[in-house]
Simulated assay, not measured.
Amino acid sequence: MKAGDTSLEPPQSVINAPTKSRILVVDDHPAFRFGLRELISDMAMAEVCGEAEDAATALAAFRELKPDLVLLDISLPGRDGIELTKMMKAEAPRTPILIVSMHDEAFYGLRALRAGACGYLRKDDSLDQLEDAIEHALRQDYYLSPRLKRHLIQQFLQNNGQPQESYTLQGLSDREMEVFHWLGKGLGTRQIADRLGLSVKTIETHRAHIKTKLSLESAEDMVKLAREWKLLGEKPANRMAAGRN
């Protein structure tokens, strides 16, 4: 530094420090977001750049922050994670989105991939799996949990490589599955319409299609099945929320 020059130059180590990948965390459970922050803070090449607890806030943060990766739950106030994935990928096709959900991958795994996600994990998967998935996603690579791989292979073999056409939950469209999800949460038609920003008539149409596809005799049977599915498919997931031990 020349005499009289009061400018400060950053240390060489700071100049050469690698840029960390910026991750947006979207989940409506504060404890789980905390667990993700703790996990990511231990990663040398990544950091949390923002958080969101609902679909509208997530989309606004996505547009403002332009993250390198989005960790996204499915069950969110407003639009669900599948619809949100489609919207984000439409705006930024090269931004990887990794779904981390309590839902069984047998119901949502393939839907998430078709929507544009680069991977799908359950919240009760190990922390090592999640860290591995994040590293894959940041490399623009796909990550499938062992369970999802087995499920996709079995589905492929059972259908001789053809798309599944049977009237099971897999036969529901993404929007019908979203309505089914909120039925399982105990919401009525008008409440679902308000939450999804759709008309009551549109929700009634989706309900009718669901009832037909699932070969159910009444609306009561449909609601009962949706609630049973929620109880079976959503189990408490505390491993990630607890952070590393």
Score class of each variant (00 low, 15 high):
Glu53Arg: 11
Arg22Ile: 08
Leu36Pro: 14
Arg37Ser: 10
Gly35Tyr: 02
Ile74Leu: 15
Val26Ser: 04
Phe62Ala: 10
Asp42Trp: 00
Ala61Lys: 14
Phe34Trp: 03
Leu65Gly: 14
Leu72Tyr: 04
Ile40Asp: 07
Leu76Glu: 03
Val26Asp: 06
Glu53Ser: 15
Lys66Asn: 11
Ala58Thr: 03
Ala56Glu: 12
Ala60Thr: 04
Ala44His: 11
Arg63Asn: 12
Val25Asn: 04
Met45Leu: 08
Leu65Glu: 12
Asp80Trp: 04
Met45Lys: 11
Phe32Gly: 01
Met88Thr: 04
Ala106Asn: 04
Ala61Cys: 11
Pro77Thr: 00
Glu47Ser: 14
Gly50Phe: 02
Ile23Tyr: 08
Ala55Pro: 06
Gly50Lys: 04
Ala56Arg: 12
Asp104Cys: 11
Asp68Met: 07
Ile82Trp: 10
Ile23Lys: 13
Val70Asp: 00
Ala55Thr: 05
Arg37Gly: 14
Ile97Lys: 13
Ala55Val: 02
Val100Gly: 13
Pro96Arg: 01
Ala44Pro: 15
Ala31Glu: 07
Gly35Phe: 01
Asp68Trp: 03
Glu53Ile: 00
Asp73Thr: 01
Gly81Cys: 09
Lys86Ser: 15
Ile97Val: 15
Thr95Glu: 05
Ala56Met: 08
Ala55Arg: 10
Gly78Asp: 05
Asp54Cys: 13
Leu72Thr: 03
